[in-house]
């Protein structure tokens, strides 16, 4: 059962209010005769006592999802589409309603599971974010950003500079090779197979490693 735009906005407002001052009931005010209020009441998303509104547990969950969509949309617009900051909020407000459930997780993955919106407010984490926390050890990292003693397998070499590529290949660093970072400063020292190499940052930043440990 899909809520209409107006109803979603009400849930959103209530959720944000609850985020600011938890437990507070909101004055019903002008929304009194709004048909969406009745609808939301009927569906059990909100509670109404003495002209004051509050989210039910079910409403909490739904509101959280809407906010997540909204703030992810904001991120998407600023980070990827580069829309001016001032316009971000109104545009996302329209957009969040268009985002279907499930798609927001794809966008979240795409954006690298952002923790906050462009205004600094936190984005409620979704299922995808929790999964990525567990998988964080498995992700790919560039050699120059690995921790000392981290191990992995070379995932790929990425560079536009041919001489650099030649040097990396000369060292026998190719996809699939076991690699382990021994030291980061003053030079990067890593081990491939049974041999160690020292390289500078420039070369260390073209080797991408799938971390295993």
């Amino acid at each position: 059962m899909k809520l209409n735009e107006r109803a979603e906005e009400i849930l959103e407002t209530l959720w944000v209010n609850n985020e600011k001052s938890p437990g507070e009931w909101m004055d019903l005010g002008l929304a009194k005769d709004n048909p969406e209020i009745d609808e939301l009441l009927k569906l059990g998303y909100i509670k109404l006592i003495n002209n004051r509104l509050s989210l039910s547990d079910k409403g909490m969950i739904e509101g959280r999802k809407i906010i997540r969509r909204h703030r992810l949309a904001e991120r998407l617009f600023t980070d990827v589409l580069d829309i001016k900051e001032k316009l971000v909020h109104p545009v996302s407000c329209q957009f969040e309603h268009l985002l279907q459930e499930g798609i927001e997780d794809d966008i979240c993955v795409l954006l690298g599971h952002p923790k906050t919106c462009p205004h600094g407010k936190s984005i409620p984490p979704g299922e995808c974010c929790r999964k990525s926390q567990k998988d964080i050890k498995k992700i790919i990292s560039v050699l120059s950003e690995m921790d000392v003693n981290q191990k992995g397998k070379v995932a790929y070499i990425y560079t536009k500079d041919n001489p650099t590529l030649q040097k990396v290949m000369a060292m026998g660093v190719l996809p699939g090779m076991a690699i382990n970072l021994v030291q980061k400063y003053p030079s990067y020292v890593f081990q491939v197979g049974q041999s160690q190499f020292a390289v500078d940052k420039e070369i260390a930043s073209v080797i991408y490693v799938r971390i295993t440990k």
Binding site: G172, M177, V192, G193, Q194, S195
Partner: peptide, 11 residues
């Protein structure tokens, strides 16, 4: 070749 690095040197 360095036998302990055969993997790297065999190509």
């Amino acid at each position: 070749v360095d036998a302990k690095n055969l993997e790297r040197m065999l190509p």
